[in-house]
Design a binder for these strands. Structure first.
Lengths: 153, 153
DNA sequence: CTATAGTCTATCATGTCTATAGATAAGCAG
DNA sequence: CTGCTTATCTATAGACATGATAGACTATAG
């Protein structure tokens, strides 16, 4: 299960990518628009900034905005900002290395071998999908469903 | 990250599948052999029994043993016994259904669509690999490494 | 100088995870 | 029937992560 942080981050970022008219977004407005607890969102946006996904400016006229184009922001980079690297087992973690405490022989550990495949499969999906892709996919689905409705009438 | 429960379960089951000579295994022996806290292992074996992976008998001569052949016990069934269905988001959970609390429109939710792909990718791996496969893979790796050693001498 | 808006620190409740202790129940041997 | 063996159940404790809130602090436009 991905955390609420990740989901709120996706919602806020998607909102910004969808409505590119404004040049900056206030925490309060994002919180209201996407129904996210304001104080919680604060910390989330700060994390996204530290990952180079958002930029911000203080003071009047300030706020947050996307640091990169939506088609260059991957879902993986968003999720990993909150969930860490998505290692299914400790010994496959890159940013916080170390062997699994219970493992007797990492070299021949079948669990590690299989889990490496799992990790790769996950990465291949989430590191390929971008924010732009997600908005497009959502819009496509919306239209597909409204057409289905037309037929059923 | 999969839990220690899952890892201990895999270790205990692999041990039983590897040494098929004995007709039953004592909790205490499994705990010693695989270096697992005995009391903790108790609960784990009980869960595996409730999932139909193990069978048991009390009293002298009793113990635990595999309820099925190792090539019919999937890694997925073991992991799911402890981690639940591996739904990346609430709305994709089958055994504890319900929509994600923050979701406004599940039908067009891009996160759900992508995560469904992730869930499928994970399942395709772990539901295909069996206990027998893992033992074989581990043994293969052991031999491969010892051959590599031969060359390097 | 002051209102605005992001940033930082601390705290809280709740829940899960790993692990341990102690009591209980089933089953075999004599 | 007694006693030993072995699984099973209930309860608890400590550590940590998660979701969320409160309040003080800092930068900046005008």
């Amino acid at each position: 299960m991905i955390s609420m942080r990740s989901k709120y981050a996706i919602k806020a970022l998607t909102y910004m990518a969808r409505t590119r008219d404004k040049e900056s977004y206030l925490i309060a407005d994002l919180a209201t628009a996407e129904n996210i607890p304001k104080k919680f969102l604060e910390a989330i946006l700060l994390t996204l900034k530290s990952q180079g996904i958002l930029t911000s400016r203080k003071g009047p006229g300030g706020g947050y905005w996307l640091a990169k184009a939506p088609n260059t922001i991957t879902l993986g980079s968003i999720i990993r900002a909150f969930e860490g690297d998505l290692a299914p087992v400790q010994c496959l973690s890159e940013n916080s290395p170390g062997s699994c405490p219970e493992c007797q022989d990492a070299a021949t550990c079948a669990t590690r071998l299989v889990m490496a495949d799992v990790q790769k499969a996950i990465s291949e999906i989430i590191d390929t999908v971008t924010l732009a892709d997600m908005i497009e996919r959502s819009e496509f689905e919306r239209q597909r469903l409204s057409k289905q409705l037309d037929f059923s009438i």
